[in-house]
Design a protein around this nucleic acid. Structure first.
Lengths: 260, 260
DNA sequence: CACCATTCTCGTACGTCGTACGATGAGAGC
DNA sequence: GCTCTCATCGTACGACGTACGAGAATGGTG
């Protein structure tokens, strides 16, 4: 599983305030810090003090925190105390919190199986892929929220992308279209699961749910919302979220190669 | 446009620490503060000092800030200084920041036209609705992000929901299904627009985009990502985001009433 | 008119956050 | 040994959301 992810520090980026007289390695403007450098293999040979922690351990702690208490619980201080490090030590392993979040996303993405070969039925394969994504997001409910801002391209997310592209090959579309489909599919699953989770959370706290129901009932009977009134009154057998997901997914995927 | 949205304060909720001896209005446990109370009309007659600002003015300032600098720029301090109020004065108009965000969402939702009657072709109507949502989100790029956490049920969002339900009527589904379809459609549009915006932002800052392209190229040629390599190399004529959106939308909607 | 209960305004303050800085210490090479 | 390199992490700063409560403005009532 890409062992070098547990690699140690070697990140600090200093900028002594004095004498900005064009350092010698040209292109001085490139303060950009290549964000992807993160994922690239281990750097030069060891020297000096040996790291006391590991990127992996820190990521694991952060994920555990998010799983247990949500994304907001992931603060540098709490992660640090969880691994037994000083707060500022984390910055030897990730240049900032945003990066730590990317590490988290890629870390849990390792749970997605990537070895299954395509069956040749690309629609079925794509549905399998979406179900795998959904299961992952249900296991890590913070994931949809974390994905909504980010486009993480770590080794594990890329491996899964590779699988998706392989599955899409028989569809005969061009590369850009395939990439787009995968991105859209992921966004769709994230959106659905986020909704699913919100729904479940609402059912958990009956106070809030009841208040909302009361409010909606009031709105529905104000005379200006006849459609809402009817929608709320019509029964509609209750469906499992699983079934609903499958239905929507089918709608999206079954229409996929119909060019218009 | 539901004028009482510009209504003044009347919000403060105190809880003096002393003597919690069951206040007289029964059901003392209900500390819940009915979140929807926010949207309900103006309360009793005026007394005391007259409000210097308005909920509307504050919301407008917050929206302007978000439009110009993104959601993160919306802090209580900046909104307050924008309207010329003290920071804490905002809390007379909204009980907390979360509520202010809900006000913002509902405020911009007023831009969605709600008077057009359904044409009878519910698929076409639904596509129109999605395009309206997309246009709104492009005008207020923070909206997808704001929606991802929230389920706002203000007067304007409800009015638009009413329109969507009317459009869906000819589809002949039950109420719960219609509500679900609207929620999913909205989530889909939000996901798509978020992606679209991220794409556009990446194109804006060439440094980051170039770094990412370089990284992806490196990954593609590492031998472990043949599918990615091919996807990146195949041309695929560039499409406008508009066309892409229309295509995906068509896929989703055209499959909508196929029960399985 | 004076008085008072009510309501809004907002300065101050607290606890939290991400993270910049730089002293301190541990290992490796000479 | 000395020195160079690199990790650790205490302290500190400037944000943030918002609790508290003193003050000012208003309307209702004598």
């Amino acid at each position: 599983m890409l062992g070098w992810l547990s690699q140690g520090p070697q990140q600090r980026e200093r900028e002594k305030g004095t004498a900005k007289i064009v350092t010698r390695d040209g292109a001085s403007g490139a303060r950009g810090v290549d964000p992807q450098q993160l994922w690239l293999g281990p750097t030069g040979p060891r020297r000096g003090r040996r790291p006391a922690f590991s990127r992996e351990a820190i990521t694991v702690a952060a994920v555990a925190l998010a799983d247990a208490e949500g994304l907001d619980a992931v603060t540098m201080r709490r992660v640090a105390s969880q691994v037994g490090a000083g707060v500022m030590s984390l910055y030897s392993y990730a240049p900032d919190k945003e990066t730590l979040l990317e590490l988290m996303v890629d870390h849990v993405s390792a749970e997605l199986p990537t070895t299954d070969a395509p069956t040749g039925d690309w629609r079925a394969d794509l549905k399998t892929i979406a179900h795998l994504q959904r299961a992952l997001m249900l296991r890590h409910p913070w994931l949809p929220g974390a994905l909504s801002t980010r486009r993480t391209l770590g080794p594990n997310t890329l491996a899964f992308l590779e699988r998706a592209l392989a599955a899409l090959r028989p569809a005969g579309l061009d590369g850009a279209a395939n990439l787009e489909i995968f991105a859209q599919l992921t966004a769709f699953v994230a959106g659905h699961v986020a909704y699913e989770i919100a729904q479940a959370a609402a059912a958990q706290s009956p106070d809030r749910a009841a208040a909302e129901a009361r409010y909606l009932a009031a709105v529905a009977t104000d005379g200006h919302h006849p459609e809402l009134a009817e929608a709320l009154s019509s029964p509609g057998r209750p469906l499992t979220p699983e079934a609903t997901f499958t239905r929507f997914l089918g709608r999206l995927i079954d229409g996929l190669d119909t060019d218009e």
